Each structure stands twice: as C-alpha cells, then as structure tokens.
Simulated scan of single mutants.
Amino acid sequence: MAFHEQRFPLRLSLTSSGGPGRQTDIVSLSNGREARNRRWRFSRRRYDVGSALRSVADLYAVLEFFEARGGQLHAFRFRDPVDFSSARPDEGVTSLDQWIGTGDGVTTAFPLVKAYGDGAAVERRPVVKPVAGTLRIAVDGVERMTGFAVDATSGIVTFEEGHVPDAGSEIRAGFEYDVPVRFDTDRIEINLDAFRAGRIPSIPLIEVIP
C-alpha cells in the first residue's frame, strides 16, 4: 500500500458527516466507582461522504477517485469541512496560532501540531499533511518570511542554516491541513434517483497513520 498525495474532491466533501472518535476501556469497580483507561493516544476520525444527491458527473468523480485508490488499498488526503486549519473556523490563519516548540540554538526540525484545550486539559494533535503554501512561522512573536521550509508530506518544519531559533525562543505556526484517510469499504454502490442525478448511500472514510 502507499499514500497518494491526492485530496478527495473538495466539493464532494462539504456535505460529509463525521469527526473524531476515541477508544476508552471502562471497568465498574465493586465500590461503584469506575476505572477508565485511554487505549489510543490520539483520536481517530471517521467520515461519511455519501448520501447527498449528486449529479452523474459528481458520482463518476467519486467512482474514478475510488478506483484510482484501489478501494481500501491506498490512503489519501481529505479536508475536514469544519476542522482544517490552525485557527478557529471563523478566524483567519496567523503565524501565532499554534505553539510547535522551543528553540535550543541547535534543533532545526519541529513537527506541526494543533492544540485543543479548555483550561482543564490540552491535547496536541500531530499535523502530518499540511497544505502546501499555507504555512506561516513566528519566532518570539515576530513572523519570519524566509529561512524555513515545511515538508507537506510529513508536517516537519525545518529551519535553514543561519536561521535556527535561539535557545529559549518560542516557535509558533499557522497553517491549513488535510486529514490522511482511506476508504473503509471495498464497494461503491450507486443509486440513480432522478434524471442525470443519484446518490451513493454510504462512502465511509477512516483516518490512518501514513
């Protein structure tokens, strides 16, 4: 299997349903309390991009994309219609959105992450499929325009020689990103409901680690 750096057609993902899921073991104790254990370090997202009435052209686009991926064989990019950037949905991306590390004067590579928190706890999700051309970087609150690059296939930001962040400096980033997913089925069933239009009842996708 391989990862194809192709994005599922954006116009077909806007009506998708789904989101993050976790796996937690819960054991009821004899005193009435519960013991809870988190089995997954990070959440895993699932989506369904089926059900909406679509033109025959859109149905063919799904069919073509499915065949090119070999069904479940090859993973690909998917844009979550709600959670796709370092900023909140109603805000634009800035270079100060997310903390990605603290400089030590030596380290040149920093992985992109996105934090989710409410004061009681913070979860930092690795971002491995940033969208090319969207990255913005700031060091100690000052945006940098040059001296760094990002690998769009892994989410690793690398600073060039002469631009390595000094010890103690705060490194922040803003970016858009896709979710790495695969089809969670090896079958696509198309129903024609009207003239030149139809639907695919279910097209399940599941997040993968590329």
Rank of each mutant, 00 (worst) to 15 (best):
G133I: 10
P201W: 09
P130L: 06
R79F: 04
Y60D: 15
V208G: 08
D184P: 02
G119L: 05
V106M: 12
K129E: 10
H163V: 10
D186T: 14
F183H: 07
E161C: 01
D186M: 13
A115M: 07
F78R: 03
E91A: 11
K129M: 12
P130A: 09
F175E: 02
G147N: 04
Y116Q: 10
P165S: 03
M145G: 14
E143H: 01
F110E: 06
F183L: 06
S17Y: 11
G21M: 12
T102N: 11
H4I: 13
G18L: 14
G71K: 08
S154P: 09
I171H: 02
D83R: 03
S17G: 11
R39C: 03
F195Y: 15
E143D: 07
G168V: 01
S169Q: 13
F84P: 09
D140S: 04
Y60L: 15
F66H: 03
E67W: 04
R144P: 05
G21V: 13
G168C: 00
L12S: 08
S55H: 10
R45F: 11
R124E: 11
I190R: 07
R144V: 14
V128D: 09
A138P: 05
P204N: 09
E64K: 15
T15G: 15
G21Q: 13
E91D: 10
F78I: 02
G71V: 01
E67S: 14
H4F: 15
G50R: 06
S17F: 06
E5H: 14
F84W: 07
R39H: 01
V139I: 14
D166A: 15
M1K: 12
M1A: 12
F159P: 10
V122M: 02
E176A: 13
F66Q: 12
T185F: 07
L192E: 06
A75I: 09
R196F: 12
V208F: 07
S13Q: 06
V82E: 13
R144G: 10
F66E: 07
M1F: 05
F3Q: 01
A52P: 08
A132W: 00
V208D: 07
L112T: 02
V122L: 01
G141T: 01
S86T: 00
G103H: 05
A197W: 09
G70I: 10
P111T: 02
R46I: 14
M145V: 15
R46L: 07
